[in-house]
């Protein structure tokens, strides 16, 4: 596959650098997520303060099947190197074409603005997760390539 040690070493360098770049990217995207999530949690806490502790929690979430459907769908496609690429799509209608009710309605009709803000923050995080997922898959594939190259290098230098 690779002719000389130099070629293997050059490829190793290239993938090592790429892997460092990806690690940095992963940390920065996660920190970005952290910031948005923190805002979301604060908005959620503010709406709890307005509506009362018991009125915003898991107790308001329906538990029956068919009562709620996801507003997000993950589309996964393979790129030219067969690495899965995620894309989070926001939808308003389910597969049958029916409109999916807004989850904010579980918490009442006249909800505080803070709850709407919290919803936006968490939705932004869900969108960002596809970016994070793509970085993760690239890290995995780069790591595999590095392992393979190291093995080749060992075989050549024997």
């Amino acid at each position: 596959m690779h002719g000389s040690v130099d070629e293997v070493c050059a490829a190793l360098d290239k993938f090592t650098l790429r892997s460092l770049e990806l690690m940095e990217e992963k940390v920065s995207v996660t920190l970005q997520m952290e910031e948005i999530l923190r805002d979301g949690h604060i908005e959620l806490a503010k709406s709890r303060y307005i509506r009362g502790m018991e009125n915003i929690g898991m107790l308001q979430v329906p538990t029956e099947a068919g009562q709620f459907e996801s507003l997000f769908k993950v589309q996964t496609e393979l790129d030219e190197e067969s690495i899965p690429q995620f894309d989070v799509i926001n939808r308003k209608h389910n597969d049958e074409g029916k409109e999916i009710p807004d989850p904010i309605k579980w918490f009442g009709v006249l909800v505080p603005q803070n709850l709407r803000n919290a919803q936006k923050r968490f939705q932004a995080t869900a969108q960002l997760s596809s970016k994070c997922g793509n970085i993760r898959t690239e890290i995995i594939s780069t790591t595999e390539k590095l392992n393979e190259l190291k093995r080749i290098k060992k075989n050549i230098s024997k």
Partner: peptide, 17 residues
Amino acid sequence: EDTCVGFLLGGVGEINK
């Protein structure tokens, strides 16, 4: 709980058949 409530409020949750 807060993380789950937040994401479910965002519309991530689903209970299948």
